[in-house]
Amino acid sequence: MAELRIQGLSKHFGAHTVLRGIDLTVASGSLVAILGPSGSGKTTLLRLLCGFERADGGSIALNGRIVSSAADHVPPEQRRIGYVPQEGALFPHLSVAENIVFGLPRQERRARHRVQELLELVGLSADYANRPPQQLSGGQQQRVALARALAPSPALVLLDEPFSALDAALRAETREAVADALSAAGATAVLVTHDQSEALSMGHQVAVLWDGRLVQVASPEQLYRQPANPELARFIGDAVLLPGVAGNGQVQCALGTLALMGGMPQGPVQVLLRPEQIRLLPLSGASEARARVLEVIFYGHDACVRLRTGGVSPIELTARVPGHSSPVPGQEVALAIEGSVAAFA
């Protein structure tokens, strides 16, 4: 498996610029999730990597070999890229086994080379080999599509929103199976998705694509805790943004004095905290931040609590609390903030 290096990649469709100067390096054997809202250019980026479209500028190198640049365009069939399209796209006229060996030379197709091994790799039993794809569930189709992509030992595996068509329960299970199969195969992989939790849970690194630009490339934890800007903070997850004043590793805001992460700006700032950092405590009478519960949305494992703080300039915010300890509307609670917070100038 190889390293992928993208430099200054850009693409226009007519007057519309879809990608502007994308730089990204994916280390050998790692999985990078490209996260972006719809229309951000994710699919275009993926199609450029596959070679289905030609780039207008920049270069793509796989393991040091240029596959796309101003001068060169290696056709898709010569790039050794395993592509797992949205919803699998299994060949409907072929059985599962025939789908898996599709990209292999004739002798290996006849011998059904590695079918059993690959089925096992993606967590399906060998009985599936002779079934038509129509008889598989969405998640099983997705796994066969991955096995098919892995069969010719590609240099890179690209996954295009592979789980978006699956229902919630199947999605979690399939995600896990796919992640295991990719790491067992030692594959270098790029996963494109608009689903934050999918990107955060599967990517070793997450690259956020926003309006044709990569705005941040970071580990999932860093991206969630220290996003590059407030918009991104809201896109990655639920965010509470409050005005405040930062200095000396602390920040003053409506919720009191909070610990600030390192490397944050000074002076007037916007404070970012995540709803699960807010703890609701019984009133103790001390000079603590207080709020009234407006509404509780109960999800089972947790609950979202909409709150309004007291004082001269009340603000509304949302806290996420464990389901077993959700308050009731109208209740007065004290607020405590766990951990440090981020801030934007």
């Binding site: 596959c50 069939e77 399209p85 796209a89 060949f91 098919r148 069969a151």
Partner: peptide
């Protein structure tokens, strides 16, 4: 579905 052709191309078919 164009994805079928694309899959085939990425699997090495001209």
């Amino acid at each position: 579905d164009p994805a079928l052709e694309e899959s085939a191309r990425s699997l090495g078919l001209g």
